[in-house]
Design a protein around this nucleic acid. Structure first.
Lengths: 214, 214
DNA sequence: GCAATATGACCTTTGGGTAAGTTACCTCAG
DNA sequence: CTGAGGTAACTTACCCAAAGGTCATATTGC
């Protein structure tokens, strides 16, 4: 349902903000509220208030709460995927590529950290349009991460697809943890943050491999 | 508010299930629903149905939806913290202790994986009794994690408190990712899960340390 | 006049919470 | 032993505020 200005002369006969612009405002506001309060915890009225407009306009443009959430998923998913694809198109590999991606995602997520949470919301509907959108975008993002992580694991002689899948999830959640930590320590400069990450990586990497005996 | 049978002769004059037992049943059902649907996504009626009783009984025993959720947090928090403390009291250190902890938690979580999610619910109230309960139990767990992580980093010659703090967050988030992944792959046994983790740790640890040049 | 933007007022459902009553078992006076 | 009264366990039926969703209407540029 959510459509940008289409067929006709763009922006013909209008009093207020053109639909495409307004849709953008609403979606950005909605991403913030959905991402911080969760799908079930968010009311459409709250989103409207946040966007500075009235509830019916949201329904006029997005049809339903689910339609609005779906638009948010497409908005956030595109932003994240494009950045990751940009970095993936470079020629770095292994953990170095990991650090580069981390850096890029940091920059993208810094002003809007809640985007990430849209895709991991337990209170989101698990069937229908929303489930499909979540699946579509997590798969798109995950595909890129899987590519990098798979490369790394294969380099170490592990090519179990489930291992790669799990490791990808771990890798992605590390992003979340580091960004969240950063937001809680705003006096930290990006450079210092990157250094810190490298230090932590180094420390963990130089630890001894444990032996198993449960 | 939730109290076991107290003062009087235990279980005097009763028709149905004794209160303490019933409370246990309700809390277990509630943990499952809250943990899978999120706080905002859960209705008390749904919990009552799951527990096989009526809604007012829930209110009679727990006072409110928040009271019920709070009881769940204490129930789950105690279970998790006790297991982690048990392992912390052993004498393993570094990554080995990390793996042991993972193994223990996986075993605990196998029949009730949703317990973990209670403490990372974005739709849960962020003030009042619930916020306090979440804080109390996550801090109890975090303290243990900080202990283990700090030990690991100091072994590698890093004793920056901020590094330890950040690394703890990363570690717990790794933990979270692995548990979440597991929730999506329920046919995996705890033992298999632990093996997988060991395999992943090993692979990553034997990778080369990256060089910085952004 | 027509089309696009925008809203106040309204309808309907959901869900947290409650009032009041019912059932079964216990105790104890007669 | 028995039945009246007490109490814990439990439910049906309800209230009401909040939230999803809709409608009629206002405003303005072409």
């Amino acid at each position: 349902m959510p459509r940008a200005t289409s067929g006709m002369r763009a922006n013909a006969g209008t009093k207020g903000v053109p639909r495409a612009d307004r849709e953008g405002q609403i979606v950005r506001a909605a991403c913030e509220v959905f991402g911080t309060e969760g799908f079930a915890g968010t009311s459409v009225a709250a989103v409207a208030a946040r966007a500075g407009i009235s509830k019916p306009l949201v329904y006029q443009y997005f049809g339903s709460k689910e339609g609005l959430f779906s638009a948010c998923l497409h908005h956030g998913g595109a932003i994240l995927a494009e950045e990751m694809e940009r970095i993936a198109s470079g020629d770095t590999v292994g953990l170095e590529r990991g650090l580069l991606t981390l850096n890029g995602i940091f920059r993208i997520l810094e002003p809007q950290p809640w985007l990430w949470r849209l895709f991991f919301d337990p209170s989101a509907p698990r069937e229908g349009e929303i489930a499909a959108a979540i699946k579509e975008h997590t798969e798109r993002i995950t595909t890129l991460a899987v590519e990098g992580v798979g490369e790394l694991l294969r380099l170490q002689g592990d090519d179990d697809p489930l291992d790669i899948d799990a490791m990808t999830r771990v890798w992605m959640s590390i992003f979340d943890a580091l960004v969240t930590w950063w937001l809680d320590h705003p006096d930290e400069s990006p450079a210092a943050m990157t250094e810190r990450c490298l230090r932590l990586f180094t420390a963990v990497l130089s630890a001894d491999v444990p032996v198993l005996q449960p």
